[in-house]
Structure formats: structure tokens, C-alpha cells
Design a protein around this nucleic acid. Structure first.
Length: 203
DNA sequence: TCGGCGATTAGCT
DNA sequence: GCTAATCGCCGAG
């Protein structure tokens, strides 16, 4: 399998919504403590900078948490949600443009036994990698990885040549952002049609 | 300093 | 469909 690590320019050259779409089918790879786990990205959500009411950086909000969103595209933004779940995001754009993409679901590809163990499950099922909290749990991603560039050897995104046709992609509004008013209706969620690991509503 | 709440999940009704 | 779990963030005072 010929794998190409995505170059940083991948995160710089497109609008955040196009990067979110382009990330579908790519591989999210972690190799912490010689534990190689790979998941194919099957669901993403774009958060469009200071103008997006659903974004943590809306209105230019700059805090210890959101600081990472203002870093250069191609680094990880990991934060704690509801005091329980770690959320993994990919920062995009140039420095000082707080765009980010939430990885909402992966399809396990490699290291499934390890993911299963991290999830505390006896057998593999579709809940491994389904939902943003489960993505980080399965891949062992933690807040300690916040701000890391996604070109490191133990946390990166790669292309293995997997083809995604435009007709394979479903576009909907985002999940769990009702507080964002009209912006909650924006078509910023992308997922692979009929993929069983996709979370939430399927349309 | 304090209190409400969140880009969620699992388990129960 | 409803709710507890659990804690850091952040705006109000």
C-alpha cells in the first residue's frame, strides 16, 4: 500500500469546507508506544473561523483553549467536551485564521484489536470510531496532542489512494450546534454515504 | 471568585 | 426520548 503523508499545503490551499470534504477517505494514523492504529476518515464537520457562530473562535474569541485554532493549518486542535470526551480537530488555513475541522467518525483499518481494547469492548462493532468522542478514544488521542503538527511520525494523516466520488459524499447541517442560530443550518457536515461508522442523523 | 453549560455518549424507559 | 456523568471554559460581578 503506497501511502503519502498529506503535506502541510493540503491544509493551507483550500477553504475549510473543501478541506473537510477532501479529508473523507484519508487515513488518520496514530503510532503511540508502538501501538499502530489507523482509521479511514468517514465523517467531518467544518468550523468556519470568526464568522461562524458554532465555532469556538466566533467573533475572534482568543482564549487558552481556542489559541490552537489560530495556529497554522496542519496542526491538531484537541479539547475536552462535557468534561468527559476528547475531540480531535484539524486546523486549516494560515496562521491567525481560526478554521478547524472536527473528525466525527473513522472506519477502523489497522490495529482493530488495540482500538477495541481502548474502547473497553470484548468484540469489534460499529461503535468503534463512530462519533467524535469515540474517534479519539479508539486512536488514543488526548489533549496532550493539542497543537501537534500532523506530519509527525506518531500522529498524521495520509492518502492511500482511496477514491471518493462526489456522489459518495452526503452534505448536511452540523450536529449539536443548535446554540449557533442560523449558522446551525449551514451545510458544513460531510460523510461517506452508507458508511456504518457515520454518527448521528444520516441525512 | 462563581456558576452555567457544552462541537457527547451510553444506558435506561 | 430522557438524563447522568464530569470538568474546564468563560462571562458576569
Amino acid at each position: 500500500m503506497d501511502m503519502q503523508v498529506l503535506p502541510l499545503s493540503f491544509y493551507w490551499d483550500m477553504h475549510v469546507t473543501d478541506v473537510a470534504k477532501s479529508l473523507l477517505g484519508k487515513l488518520l494514523i496514530t503510532n503511540f508506544h508502538q501501538q499502530l492504529t489507523i482509521g479511514r476518515i468517514v465523517e467531518t464537520e467544518a468550523y468556519n473561523g470568526v464568522e461562524d457562530r458554532a465555532s469556538h473562535a466566533f467573533g475572534g474569541r482568543y482564549t487558552p483553549r481556542t489559541k490552537t485554532m489560530y495556529a497554522q493549518g496542519g496542526c491538531a486542535y484537541v479539547y475536552l467536551c462535557y468534561g468527559i470526551h476528547e475531540m480531535f480537530n484539524v486546523v486549516t488555513g494560515s496562521e491567525n485564521t481560526p478554521h478547524a475541522i472536527l473528525i466525527r467518525a473513522i472506519e477502523p483499518v489497522t490495529g482493530i484489536a488495540i482500538m477495541q481494547q481502548r474502547m473497553g469492548k470484548n468484540k469489534a462493532d460499529y461503535s468503534i470510531g463512530r462519533g467524535p468522542g469515540n474517534v479519539t478514544k479508539a486512536l488514543g488521542i488526548h489533549r496532550q496532542h493539542n497543537g501537534r503538527l500532523l506530519t509527525e511520525t506518531d500522529l498524521y494523516i495520509a492518502d492511500d489512494g482511496f477514491k471518493v466520488l462526489p456522489t459518495d459524499i452526503v452534505i448536511t447541517q452540523r450536529i449539536g450546534v443548535d446554540y449557533a442560530g442560523e449558522d446551525a443550518l449551514l451545510p458544513y457536515r460531510f460523510f461517506l454515504k452508507n458508511n456504518p461508522y457515520v454518527s448521528g442523523k444520516k441525512r
